[in-house]
């Protein structure tokens, strides 16, 4: 992580038009006067997304604070995955998808023509709903990203990146003696941690997770949630989840989407204890969605 180069800019935290009034990140952002300020890693302003004629997102304003977990919740089809895929421009690969508005990472526009999308995606990693290891060995799965970005000088350095990434994804112990066996031979939960290791290996600044636990059993899910909590120390994480308990457990900030609109965004404990919008209230108490 090269935090020094990012010139963190302290902004009064505004999320969905509402001030966040609980501790979102660590003490280092606590100002002398007691008001809490956070460093904003990514921000979306006035974001509209269209799939052909159909509009999927309507004027989204959302800030993603650095080194914290932001959970996106909402019923299916509400646009939370669409929003997530805008953050690393994965929507570019979908025919007929159009994005209007402004998304910034460290204050620079990610839809800028001069920006190289390949470089952007190296800074913003992604973990998908279904574990999708490449048809390669465990080692090569993790080494793939560092290799294409030339992050390792030699074989030893590459080995080190692979080991440390697997270590941080909590997978190393289980696979250390079979790094050459295919990644597709692992169990679902192990595959998902392999995908996380693969994402970590390129040292991204942000990791996007699109329902990373929805294909996993409860034990594997607990594993991943623990991992997310540890990763927060070094990465900014945005996670889409259908599991409200999960959002409550792992995130510091929660955003509720409904029908393509960002209904409410606030500190997670606020959202789950005293939501200000009755649609949020309805969703988290299970009345619809």
């Amino acid at each position: 992580m090269n935090m020094e180069n990012n010139r963190p800019e302290t902004v009064k935290s505004v999320a969905g038009g509402m001030a966040i009034d609980t501790a979102v990140t660590g003490e280092k952002n606590l100002k002398m006067d007691g008001t809490e300020e956070t460093t904003i890693k990514m921000s979306a302003r006035n974001l509209d997304v269209f799939y052909g004629e159909k509009q999927a997102l309507f004027g989204i304003d959302l800030d993603v604070p650095e080194q914290s977990v932001t959970a996106l919740i909402g019923p299916s089809g509400c646009g939370k995955s669409t929003f997530l895929r805008c953050l690393n421009r994965m929507n570019d690969t979908i025919d007929g998808c159009r994005v209007d508005g402004d998304i910034r990472i460290d204050q620079s526009d990610i839809y800028d023509r001069a920006l190289d999308v390949v470089e952007l995606r190296a800074r913003i990693g992604m973990v998908f709903q279904k574990p999708n290891p490449f048809p390669k060995s465990i080692y090569d799965n993790v080494a793939y990203g560092p290799k294409i970005h030339g992050l390792a000088q030699d074989k030893d350095e590459l080995d080190e990146i692979v080991r440390s990434s697997l270590e941080r994804a909590g997978l190393l112990k289980e696979v250390v003696d079979r790094l050459d066996s295919p990644g597709t031979g692992l169990s679902g939960g192990q595959q998902q941690r392999l995908c996380i290791a693969r994402a970590i290996a390129v040292s991204p600044e942000v990791i996007l997770m699109d329902e990373p636990c929805s294909a996993l059993d409860p034990i594997a899910t607990a594993h991943i949630e623990e991992l997310i909590d540890e990763l927060r120390e070094n990465f900014t994480i945005v996670i889409v989840t259908h599991n409200m308990q999960q959002a409550a457990r792992v995130s510091q900030q929660t955003a509720f989407f409904h029908l393509g609109i960002l209904v409410e965004c606030n500190a997670t404990n606020e959202i789950f204890t005293s939501p200000s919008d009755e649609r949020t209230q309805g969703y988290i108490t299970g009345r619809y969605g």
Binding site: M90, R121, M126, F134, A199, L208
Partner: peptide, 26 residues
């Protein structure tokens, strides 16, 4: 599967890297 392409693109691979190193082997 499209998920393999997505996985590769999300790591910042270019289209041709994805084709050579992920799609052809698969």
């Amino acid at each position: 599967p499209q998920t393999l392409r997505d996985g590769s693109f999300a790591l910042g691979a270019t289209h041709s890297e994805t084709v050579r190193q992920v799609i052809i082997p698969a």
